[in-house]
Design a binder for these strands. Sequence first.
DNA 1: TACGCGTGGGT
DNA 2: TACCCAAGCGT
Length: 372
Amino acid sequence: MILSETGTIPHMASTIAQALLAWYAEHARDLPWRRQRDPYAVWVSEVMLQQTRADTVVPYYLRWMDRFPTVEAFASASRDEVLRMWEGLGYYRRAHNLHQAAHILVVEYDGKLPNEVDKLRDLPGIGPYTAAAIAAIAFNQDVIAIDGNLRRVLSRLIDLTIDPRSSEGERCLRSWALRECPSGQSSAFNQALMDLGAMVCLPRTPNCDACPLVRSCLALKRGVQDERPMKPPRKQIPHITVTAAVLRDGEHVLIGRRPEGVLLGGLWEFPGGRLEPEETLESCLRREIGEEIGVEIEVGARLGVFDHAYTHFRVTVHAFECKLIRGEPQAIDHSEIRWVSPEQLREYPMGKIDRAISTTILQATDQPPIEG
DNA sequence: TACGCGTGGGT
DNA sequence: TACCCAAGCGT
């Protein structure tokens, strides 16, 4: 037997890797981005999958690849169309960075993704995980892409007693996985661990009976599988109250585009803002519209109340019909403002709450004639 | 290192 | 209800 330079036996998979890959060959999820190995498709899917479940991504991915089948097709699309295709997926900076990176690929790489981790890592929106995932899945490079699934699966397998998100914890997981990964099979190896985490080694009540690695799992052996991975305590999230103005001028309503880099950056919204202590909803809205849009308004009927939970805070939005009293609207806090008809609202990418307000406006506008 | 950045499903 | 948490990245 010839040993490689590192002293390991080449192409000799460990017992764990063999069991894992055999399980994967039989149980791999049939996901649309797995039906080919186009690096562009792998890239798009990986970015969509950041902090997002596969079931959620599937319809977005299919629509995306249908509309933007190549890097060039995507790069030449408008910002608003890209955001509309992304609307509902969240973390909108991902769409912005994806678009930026597409332009770089067209100009510097002939529209092709590089196969090296370091070059991938330089593209906007591609961090350590996504760079490794593309290198492994699309190019079969011997790297480990550590995501939430791998953190959980590997933490249990080796019974890691420290936070796997810490640099020390991640180093442990990576070096262990790299030793186990059969050279040249990183694509299947990485995806097998992800599928194991997504289907069997679940966050709560893992289905150890169905696990191909049940005999190797140290946490199970010690009965601490429910306490892995170790996680730091969470902080409480605040709940804020916000007002929003549906400012009308004849048939049109006013919307503004949020600047890039903030919450819901690049998306359109109904202007308004946070309720300060001792303020009424009405005075809050008059103040906010004065500050943001530079006009005086009269606050009319309440259009609706909308609740939403973001990752770091919870919000209740009170939307009001409003009329212009004095002044010409200006884009002060917004990058752009526009008067649009209710029907045009659907063309403007929006977050969850403003889309709900839009829908309420449209329902009030398009009230079909009552039959009978 | 810690935090801001969305949304939806599960319990 | 309220909380958890999911194929992370950028600063």
